[in-house]
Write a protein that binds this DNA or RNA. Structure first.
Length: 420
RNA sequence: CGGGGCGUAGCGCAGUUGGUAGCGCAUCUGGUUUGGGACCAGAGGGUCGCUGGUUCGAGUCCAGUCGCCCCGACCA
């Protein structure tokens, strides 16, 4: 992508009431735009990042048998009335609206009900199970207070996978596979080292559910960690009784702030009972389907990455998540510099690197470097008269370290080592 | 939903005892610059969140309303 063609621009100033680091950096760099409180658009750079996060999640969901689909955002009240969650008293985040004919409908805050109802059309026998449908879908939640930039919004994309199993054992096994997949996802997203599988309250059908909590001072959750045994417990269930189950006392844990980036829980028959999602087993007996639910918010993940990967100059994207892997900076507008830059740009593109090329002729070097640091691509290549004379490229990693000089003919192998 | 703060040009701000709105950044034009957010000269851009009231006159005073941010409560 030639930066001269990118319609978004970076900004030197910010709206005064944007306080969170994630919204400050993402707005300043032109990754997102704020439509209203708790409602953000993803602009080209931000959209690329969001899609990379989605891509990683998609691969790991497919790897555990997930089948992608897309349910509707507009929701008929029927299914929700059956589970008694249509009432604003029971579910206080509803956005509701109505059709021209006066009938009421809702904007989906989650999809257990509509999906359970949908699956009734396809599940009747034990032979139809298990099934693991999932989607990346927009949820609407009428939060009383949107806050923290893109971490807590009223409209957001969520990956929600649901497991439909024949029995508890099948659910338990799948749950563990999903948990392992989540660990892998956050590793690939660059958050692995600071993300904890955290015990949380389980509800009616299991002792625990699990939250994936990324350590961050700006987080709104509090968790308790024991490093030695790698155990984390969320605040709601952190007590002497629980810690004893792990052979520890409360004093063995440290309190940390964290952002909940994912959460998995066993639904059991909660929805299959009330919506009558049953199947016939081998002996001909009717059985309720055993369900589980597995969520990740890609937008919140993006905000979390920005919160945890930045310095005073801007964002430092993990290499698999960056909008572009390489940022080429052309210093000066001499013919030789622009020609060499373009040659490099074409070479890297042909070698399947994702490249942003700052080809703007009227922008001073200082501004280009500042933009590059702000946007935060992992590798910056500076093309200048001096470097061309020496037949080399000047490479700087956004994450830190001194500049390296790489001979022109070794650039592809160098970048392959660096980025793949 | 409770408490606090704020709405003046795209963004950040100033605006005195009420007298008809200004600065910086950004944008546009011309020129000079080019290794860490350049400089000079010129230009465009605002029914002062909205509604009503007081007044000869309201950005300024009063009432209401809408929106935004922070803290807290809430968060399948």
């Amino acid at each position: 992508m030639k930066q001269s063609k990118l319609f978004t621009k970076t900004s030197k100033t910010l709206p005064k009431d944007e306080v969170s680091v994630n919204s400050q950096l993402l707005l300043k760099s032109g990754f997102i735009d704020k439509e209203m409180a708790g409602v953000y658009s993803y602009l080209p750079l931000g959209h690329r990042v969001l899609n990379k996060i989605i891509g990683v999640i998609r691969e790991e969901m497919n790897a555990i048998g997930g089948q992608e689909m897309l349910l509707t955002a507009l929701q008929s009240p029927a299914a929700w009335q059956a589970t008694d969650r249509w009432d604003d008293q029971k579910m206080d985040v509803w956005f509701k609206t109505e059709l021209k004919n006066g009938s009421t409908l809702g904007l989906a805050p989650t999809h257990e009900e509509p999906l359970t109802r949908l699956m009734k059309k396809f599940i009747s026998s034990y032979k139809d199970l298990p099934a693991f449908p999932y989607q990346f879908q927009t949820k609407f939640r009428n939060e009383t207070r949107a806050k923290s930039g893109i971490l807590r919004t009223r409209e957001f994309i969520m990956k929600d996978l649901y497991s439909f199993c024949r029995n508890q054992q099948e659910l338990d096994e799948y749950y563990e596979r999903a948990k392992a997949a989540y660990v892998k996802i956050f590793d690939r997203l660059g958050l692995g080292k600071i993300t904890y599988v955290t015990f949380a309250s389980g509800g009616t059908f299991s002792k625990f559910s699990h939250e994936f909590q990324t350590l961050c001072e700006y987080g709104e959750d509090i968790i308790y960690i024991n490093e030695e045994k790698n155990i984390a417990i969320n605040r709601e269930i952190f007590n002497e009784e629980i810690t004893k189950e792990f052979g520890l006392t409360m004093a063995d844990f440290v309190e940390k702030k964290a952002i909940e980036v994912g959460n998995i829980f066993k639904l059991g028959t909660k929805f299959s009972d009330s919506l009558e999602l049953n199947y016939v087993d081998e002996s001909g007996a009717k059985q309720p389907v055993i369900m589980g639910s597995y969520g990740i918010g890609p937008g919140r993940v993006m905000g979390t990455i920005v919160e945890t990967c930045n310095d005073e100059k801007g964002i430092i994207w993990p290499k698999h998540i960056a909008p572009y892997q390489v940022h080429i900076i052309s210093l000066g507008k001499d013919e030789a510099i622009m020609q060499e830059s373009e040659r490099l740009y074409n070479l890297l593109n042909a070698s399947n690197f994702e490249v942003l090329w700052d080809d703007r002729l009227t922008v001073n070097p200082g501004a280009k470097f500042a933009d590059s640091d702000l946007i935060g691509c992992p590798v910056r290549i500076t093309v200048s008269g001096k470097n061309i004379e020496n037949k080399q490229y000047e490479i700087k990693n956004r994450a830190g370290g001194d500049a390296k000089f790489v001979p022109q003919d070794q650039i592809i192998s160098f970048l392959t080592d660096e980025l793949k």
